[in-house]
Structures are given as C-alpha cells and as structure tokens.
C-alpha cells in the first residue's frame, strides 16, 4: 500500500540544467526573493486600540434608533415590524396608544445585543421615511463585564453606549 508514494514521487532531474537547478537550490532563492520584496512593502496592519481602520458607510455594527431629524423626538412609530422580522427575537417593544391623535408611541424599546447577530434584517421593513428609525450603527466596541449591560434600553439605543471604563 505504501508504494503509492514511491510510485508517484517526482521524476528525477535529468540533464545538466536540471542538475544545476537542484544543486543551486534555485527554487529556494525564488521564494526568498518574494519574501525579501515583501520586506519593503508598506505595513497594512494597524495597532488597534490606538488606531482604528476606517469603516465603510454600509458597515453593520450594533442596531440603534434614530431621533427625528426635525423635532428631536424618537422617529420610531412603534409598528413592531422589526420585532417581527428579527430572526433572533432580540427586539422587545412595548407600545401604547397615543393619548391624543392617532397612532402609537413607544413605552419601551429594548435590543438584546447578546442575541443579536448583526444581520440587518430589522432595518429592511422599517416604514419611517426618509430615514429608517432603526439603523445599523458604526459602533462595535461593546465588551462588558455584566450580562445586563447587553440589554440596551431606549436611551442607549438613541444616544449610544456610554464610553466604558475597562479598568474595573
């Protein structure tokens, strides 16, 4: 059985040219030349906490909510659509009838970041115009010491997470 290996071994080099190639370790020098070239290329890595890379406009970070651009209230109309489409059941909305006028308003809006998979499906059906009330933000630094810290209430969703002090 083990002779499959011997059978298919590379053919022995023949002729002077091949002999020289073998003795001079030509293919090794070709490889080393590649390595040498790369020594002089610019760095592409960044020292993360000190520098960060630029995010593209469509980057999907944690989902957050927007304020209304005109009147500064929350934009969400409590239609529960994002809650319905979320594959991980991480959005929890409580709403009530508006006391005056028609429509509903938010009582509470929670996103459980522990369950969220950043799929962005919640943004698709959001009916508010011209901007969607819920959007995928560019925040991604969300480490925490406690699990409660991952359930974001309305205030956090609107204003963003407090900068954390990791030196606890």
């Amino acid at each position: 059985m083990s002779d499959t290996r011997a059978h298919a071994a590379p053919a022995l080099p023949s002729g002077l040219k091949d002999f020289l190639k073998t003795v001079l370790l030509l293919e090794l020098w070709v490889g080393l030349w590649v390595t040498l070239k790369n020594q002089f290329r610019p760095h592409i890595t960044v020292e993360y906490p000190k520098e960060t890379v630029e995010l593209s406009p469509r980057f999907r970070g944690v989902p957050r909510l927007r304020y209304h651009p005109d009147n500064g209230e929350e934009l969400c109309i409590a239609c529960h659509l994002c809650e319905t489409v979320c594959p991980d059941d991480c959005i929890h909305i409580v709403s009530e009838k508006k006391p005056e006028g028609k429509g509903k308003r938010l009582v509470s809006f929670e996103i459980n970041y522990e369950r969220c998979c950043f799929c962005g499906l919640c943004v698709d059906p959001c009916p508010t115009k011209p901007l969607t009330a819920i959007y995928m933000s560019h925040d991604y630094e969300m480490a925490d010491y406690k699990r409660e810290g991952f359930v974001a209430p309305l205030k956090t969703l609107l204003d963003g997470m407090d900068p954390k002090d990791y030196k606890e």
């Binding site: 390595t35 592409i44 995010l55 593209s56 999907r60 998979c117 950043f118 799929c119 962005g120």
Partner: peptide, 28 residues
C-alpha cells in the same frame, strides 16, 4: 510565510464585501 500574504489579499476582498453589504464574514 504564505499564510500572511494570502490573508493580506483576502483582507482586500473582505473590504470589498464590507463596502457592499456591511459585514466581513456573515454577510447576509
């Protein structure tokens, strides 16, 4: 050595994906 070079080029593709759909691994 090859590992570092291939990941460098893979990163360029992941950047393209990030620009297209916003994610680098689980694209949806």
């Amino acid at each position: 050595t090859v590992y570092f070079y291939t990941f460098r080029e893979r990163e360029l593709i992941l950047d393209l994906f990030e620009q297209f759909c916003g994610a680098r691994l689980t694209y949806n």
